[in-house]
């Protein structure tokens, strides 16, 4: 099968021919590969069909063999009975029949052996073909993935170039993202501080309105304070 996809990639790197978007395997090669897999699959299907056919024939032969064996056994019993009745001629005739059965048996046994050998061969052939096909399918998937990654990355890089994001280096991108993150964080913290302040104030307002907290910032309280001081001094 030649080089696998990894070997092809490595030799491309060694030859430093990895220009962006350069096809690693041309579309023609993929078509040929796909055809090979299709052929392999149809060979496999044919081999499986052959196998069922041969297995059916082997089963048929086995049935024939056991029926012939039964016939032999039955006729051997007849021979015994004929001999018990001292009918030598009849026994001879039945024995002749038995040889016919046995000749038949031999033929069918031979056929069955051949079928079974054929079955074994077909099974190992199917296993090998299946393994080969699996490997080819895996490779094809990899080739196609590589191809689609290339196509996607080509589409991506042309989009990348036109979007202007390529103008930024990785470090600049990182700094911008981090600055924005910091800003978001600062804003969150500020928002949080503002929220507690507001909530605190509104609570204080409530407490003041309720008289729980005495209002000592108004002009009247200032006046009261000064008056109190003055009274103390007198």
């Amino acid at each position: 099968m030649g080089q696998n996809i990894f070997q092809k990639l490595v030799s491309l790197v060694k030859g430093s021919a990895t220009k962006a978007g350069e096809a690693i395997i041309d579309a023609n090669a993929i078509t040929i590969f796909e055809q090979e897999i299709k052929d392999g699959q149809s060979n496999l299907d044919k081999a499986k069909k052959d196998l069922t056919l041969v297995m059916a024939k082997s089963m048929e032969a086995a049935r024939k063999i056991s029926s012939l064996q039964a016939d032999v056994a039955k006729h051997e019993a007849y021979v015994e009975k004929a001999l018990n009745k001292d009918d030598e001629n009849l026994a001879m005739e039945i024995a002749g029949k038995i040889t016919e059965f046995e000749a038949d048996l031999q033929i069918h046994q031979g056929a069955k052996d051949q079928y079974d050998t054929h079955i074994k061969r077909l099974k190992s052939q199917i296993k090998d073909t299946q393994q080969g096909l699996d490997k080819m399918t895996r490779e094809l998937t990899m080739v196609k993935t590589t191809e689609s990654v290339q196509k996607a990355s080509q589409a991506i890089s042309s989009n990348y170039a036109s979007s202007g994001s390529k103008a930024l280096s990785a470090k600049e991108s990182l700094n911008r993202i981090k600055a924005r993150q910091q800003e978001t964080e600062d804003r969150l913290i500020a928002g949080e501080a503002l929220r507690t302040e507001f909530e605190g104030e509104s609570l204080e307002d409530k407490l003041r309105a309720n008289g729980i907290i005495e209002d000592n910032s108004g002009a009247s309280s200032v006046l009261d304070r000064i008056k109190a001081k003055k009274n103390k001094a007198q």
Partner: peptide, 17 residues
Amino acid sequence: EELPIYISSTNEEVLCI
């Protein structure tokens, strides 16, 4: 937006780059 992620897919897998 400086580091967009690109998604494409084959029959088998989804690639995020």
